[in-house]
Structure formats: C-alpha cells, structure tokens
Computed example of a mutant assay.
Amino acid sequence: MRQSGPPLTAFWCERVVYETLDANSPVHTSRCSMSTPAEAIRAIRVDVRALRDTLAPAERERALRWTGPGGSLGAVAALHRGEPCGFSLSGEGLWIEWTVRPYLAFDVSDLSLLRAAEAP
C-alpha cells in the first residue's frame, strides 16, 4: 500500500453569529478550510468590511483598524507560529466571532483504500 503524503498545515476558519441577549445559542455558523494564514485572514477581513456600514461608530472604527494596513498582522503571525487567532464584533443586536486554528491536513489523494470484502 502506498503511503499518503506528509501532513500539511491548513487553517480551520469559523464564523459564529450569536444574538447578544443569548450568547449560548448561535444564530448562524459557517466553516471552511484555507491553505495559508494569509488566505484565512483575508477571508475574515472581507467579511468584516462587508459589515462595517451596519456597525456602531466605535465598532466600525475597530473594524476599520483591524482590516486596514497592518491591523491583522498579529493574527497572521500567530497562525504562522501555529497559534489560533480570532476577531469579534457586535452590531445590530448580534455578536459575531471569527476564529482560525491551524490543523494538520493529510493528503490522501493517492492513498490506496482496501476493498471491502465481498459477501459470501
């Protein structure tokens, strides 16, 4: 049996939206995997920018600082070090959290799978 390739670091991204009055039950959750720290943080930055006009002035300022030049550099650096990172905002009665965690992804594209035994 051929072995799969070496494990690669990938980045698990989650966006969870909560109602601010009930932070225990998410309203919406989305997840994806990205290949690089830059891709993962870029996805969050795009999402945050899309929300900026719905935010209160203080949160809008925080969002613009984080999505602006160098604002998310610490998050990219944390992912390169193998550490998780995140960002959160509140607006329109919602609390939104973005998190990114490194994980090991295995390339199994060339892995030979065992055939199932045929029934007698």
Score class of each variant (00 low, 15 high):
Thr99Ala: 09
Gly82Lys: 05
Ala117His: 10
Ser90Asp: 09
Ala119Leu: 15
Pro84Asn: 11
Trp98Ala: 02
Glu97Arg: 15
Tyr103Ile: 10
Val100Cys: 03
Leu104Phe: 11
Phe87Gln: 01
Ala75Gly: 10
Glu83Asp: 14
Ala119Phe: 06
Gly74Trp: 06
Ala119Gly: 04
Leu111Ile: 10
Glu92Lys: 08
Gly86Trp: 03
Tyr103Trp: 14
Gly74Ser: 14
Asp107Ile: 09
Glu92Phe: 05
Tyr103Ala: 12
Arg101Ala: 15
Asp107Val: 07
Asp110Trp: 06
Leu104Asp: 12
Pro102Val: 02
Gly74Arg: 13
Ala119Pro: 03
Leu73Tyr: 06
Trp98Val: 01
Ala116Leu: 14
Arg81Glu: 15
Ala77Gly: 11
His80Lys: 13
Pro102Glu: 05
Trp95Met: 08
Ser88Tyr: 10
Ala77Pro: 07
Leu114Asp: 09
His80Ile: 08
Asp107Arg: 03
Ile96Pro: 00
Ser88Met: 11
Gly86His: 02
His80Trp: 15
Arg81His: 09
Ala119Gln: 11
Leu104Pro: 07
Gly93Cys: 09
Gly93Ile: 05
Cys85Ile: 03
Leu104Val: 06
Val108Lys: 08
Ala116Arg: 12
Arg115Cys: 02
His80Gln: 13
Glu118Cys: 08
Thr99Gln: 08
Leu104Lys: 04
Ala105Tyr: 08
Trp95His: 04
Ala75Glu: 00
Cys85Met: 10
Ser109Cys: 06
Ala117Pro: 14
Ala119Asp: 12
Ala78Pro: 06
Ser109Leu: 09
Glu92Thr: 15
Asp110Cys: 07
Thr99Cys: 11
Leu114Glu: 13
Ala77Tyr: 10
Ala78Lys: 05
Glu83Ile: 03
Leu114Ser: 08
Ala116Ser: 14
Leu111Asn: 03
Gly82Arg: 03
Leu89Thr: 01
Ala119Ser: 12
Val108Asp: 13
Pro84His: 09
Ala116His: 05
Gly91Phe: 05
Ala78Arg: 02
Trp95Arg: 04
Ala105Trp: 10
Asp110Ala: 12
Glu92His: 13
Ala78Gly: 03
Ser88Ile: 04
Ser112Arg: 14
Ser88Trp: 05
Asp110Val: 13
Glu92Met: 14
Arg101Cys: 13
Leu113Tyr: 00
Val76Ser: 05
Trp98Thr: 00
His80Thr: 09
Leu73His: 14
His80Cys: 11
Leu94Ala: 02
Ala105Leu: 15
Leu104Met: 11
Arg115Asn: 13
Ser112Phe: 11
Ala105Val: 08
Phe87Asp: 01
Gly91Cys: 04
Pro102His: 01
Gly86Lys: 06
Asp110Tyr: 02
Leu111Pro: 07
Arg81Lys: 13
Asp110Leu: 10
Glu118Val: 15
Val108Trp: 11
Thr99Tyr: 07
Val108Met: 14
Tyr103Asp: 11
Gly91Leu: 02
Val108Arg: 07
